[in-house]
């Protein structure tokens, strides 16, 4: 290869690099997307309060549904941003790019939800989550499971006897009046 060819090849490479400039994943851009999603959630709340003021029950339910979908998108976006930070710190460009793409996807979902377009699977997931945390009056392992005051924890008989004896000793140590009255009673 002569000098002219080398020069032309060098120029070609430089021009190609300038034309197709590749940037790493921009964390600032991702943080801006995160800010935009939060701004969308504020807009959803403004829409909800407007619906509440109108007194239209169906509109309130719809705006609540949209706000729930936006909350789900925010949660997903925050996870993506954390993944992006970790991948960038580890130098994993592919994983960082995937996380940035996921974040963009969440932003789009939030925007769609604000406009009333909620994917069915997301709506079902939100509904299932809400039902799972609904106060169903308790039951073993369920939310708001009330404590059983008659429950006797396993193998605690010795400890209970000890404390009862302590109380008995205290009671017995009190001064007694006349017919066996004490100044300190269990009541």
């Amino acid at each position: 290869m002569n000098r002219l060819s080398k020069l032309i090849l060098g120029t070609t490479i430089v021009v190609s690099m300038a034309a197709v400039s590749s940037h790493g994943v921009d964390q600032a851009m991702a943080a801006a997307d995160l800010a935009e999603i939060s701004a969308i959630s504020v807009q959803a709340m403004a829409n909800l309060s407007e619906a509440a003021l109108s007194g239209d029950v169906e509109a309130i339910a719809e705006m609540n549904k949209r706000a729930d979908a936006i909350d789900a998108a925010i949660a997903a976006a925050q996870e993506s941003f954390a993944a992006l930070e970790q991948a960038s710190a580890a130098g994993d460009e592919a994983a960082a790019q995937k996380a940035a793409d996921d974040l963009k996807d969440s932003l789009q979902k939030a925007q769609d939800a604000l406009n009333g377009v909620i994917p069915e699977d997301l709506a079902d997931a939100v509904e299932a989550w809400k039902n799972s945390t609904k106060n169903t009056g308790g039951g073993f392992g369920q939310p708001y499971d009330p404590p059983n005051m008659f429950d006797v924890p396993w193998n605690t008989g010795g400890a209970r006897n000890f404390y009862q004896d302590q109380w008995g000793n205290l009671f017995a140590s009190g001064r007694t009046y006349g017919g066996g009255e004490s100044d300190g009673t269990p009541e």
Binding site: L34, A35, V42, S49, A52
Partner: peptide, 26 residues
């Protein structure tokens, strides 16, 4: 409608502070 707007206000304040937090991050 006060209960709904009150909750919306609280959520909006939280969202708004998130926007500012992310602005600082940017």
């Amino acid at each position: 409608s006060l209960d709904v707007i009150r909750v919306a206000m609280q959520d909006a304040l939280a969202g708004s502070s998130q926007v500012r937090f992310n602005y600082d991050r940017v």
